[in-house]
């Protein structure tokens, strides 16, 4: 292939396996079409200078036909250029559409002023962290207007359209940080959404996954509780504002007294809440159905403690009761 010259003047550095698929065809077409332009414009300039009107030229020059052989060669050259441009990089075009088996699945949502990247374990970040040598498969959606996922260093350019899901994939070959932008001014944010791909070595990536996997790191117990409330499906049935959905609201539960379906009066203290999470359908508050999924084996004691701390922050009696508890 012709395109083995220094590419750095035209393209960002090669950071993904897609880079050669784009850059090599680009340079091949560049060289060939530059030649075509130089020949055409060059001949026009040469003819303009050579066949200047001289004194003694007749008023009109004789008519002439096109040279059929030359014309044939010229058209054939142009057709070859077209065919060349079409087939060049066709394999790369197809390859860019089909993500390899075993790629890490990451959900991407463009929304008012930020990107959300959702990893398989449910972690959400605003920068895209990837592991060198491991393909990632991106599923793209937008929460408001049409956007573009543009990662020039990865040669990824994919529109994101409202009401549709689009896809892209890439595999990094270099460690570093590479810009991402949305390519569209948003009428909402008045700016292009900019963030970065952070490509990490395997060791660094594993360390990062372990760090974000530890939900207690850098969070208070109540914050962990709120995270679990959102992640574990509690929010589907228990509101935080006092509204009754399927189960009782979490507002003003901790420390309050309730009547159960069996007629007992219980106080929602640490022990009762722990029991209600692990074996929820044993002692049910009056007026509700015993339909909750038991969480025994899904949450450990420390996580349940965190949820209790979270419930305390939602209860008028939570603060005082919390003091007594300690």
């Amino acid at each position: 292939m012709i395109g083995s010259a220094n590419l750095s003047a035209w393209f960002p550095e090669w950071a993904s396996t897609h880079a050669p698929d784009v850059d090599v065809p680009f340079f091949d077409i560049y060289v060939v079409s530059a030649c075509a332009l130089v020949v055409t414009v060059g001949l026009a300039v040469v003819f303009l200078r050579t066949y200047r009107r001289q004194d003694g030229d007749p008023d009109r020059m004789p008519a002439q036909g096109n040279n059929k052989l030359l014309l044939g060669v010229w058209v054939l050259a142009a057709v070859s250029l077209g065919v060349y441009a079409f087939q060049l990089g066709l394999a790369g075009y197809v390859a860019q559409d089909v993500a390899p088996y075993g790629a890490t699945e990451i959900g991407v949502t463009a929304r008012e002023g930020r990107w959300d990247f959702t990893y398989p374990d449910g972690t959400v970040t605003d920068t895209l962290r990837v592991e060198v040598g491991q393909p990632v498969h991106l599923t793209l959606t937008t929460a408001d207007v049409a956007q573009n996922l543009s990662i020039p260093a990865m040669r990824v350019q994919q529109p994101i359209l409202p009401g549709r899901t689009t896809e892209a994939w890439f595999e990094t070959i270099a460690v570093g940080s590479f810009p991402i932008h949305s390519g569209t001014f948003s009428a909402l944010t008045q700016d292009s959404l900019a963030t970065a791909v952070i490509s990490l070595s395997t060791a660094d990536y594993d360390a990062w996954v372990a760090a974000v996997g530890d939900i207690f790191a850098g969070r208070t117990m109540a914050e962990v509780g709120e995270l679990l409330y959102n992640q574990q499906g509690c929010k589907a049935c228990h509101s935080l504002d006092g509204a009754t959905v399927v189960g009782p609201s979490f507002k003003n539960v901790y420390g309050f007294e309730f009547l159960t379906t069996s007629g007992e009066t219980i106080t929602a203290d640490d022990a009762y809440i722990k029991e209600s999470i692990l074996t929820p359908n044993v002692s049910v508050i009056d007026g509700f159905q015993p339909v909750m999924t038991p969480y025994a084996g899904k949450l450990d004691d420390r996580e349940i403690e965190a949820i209790i701390e979270f419930l305390k922050t939602l209860s008028e009696r939570g603060h005082a009761a919390g003091q007594e508890g300690k």
Binding site: F47, L48, D57, P58, L70, V75, A78, V79, F86
Partner: peptide
């Protein structure tokens, strides 16, 4: 890409009109 054919015919005709003209 079909447009390369008329583009080639047009540029060729221009060049050969200029060739041996009295410009």
């Amino acid at each position: 890409l079909l447009a390369v054919v008329p583009a080639a015919l047009i540029s060729f005709t221009w060049l050969s009109t200029l060739y041996r003209g009295s410009i």
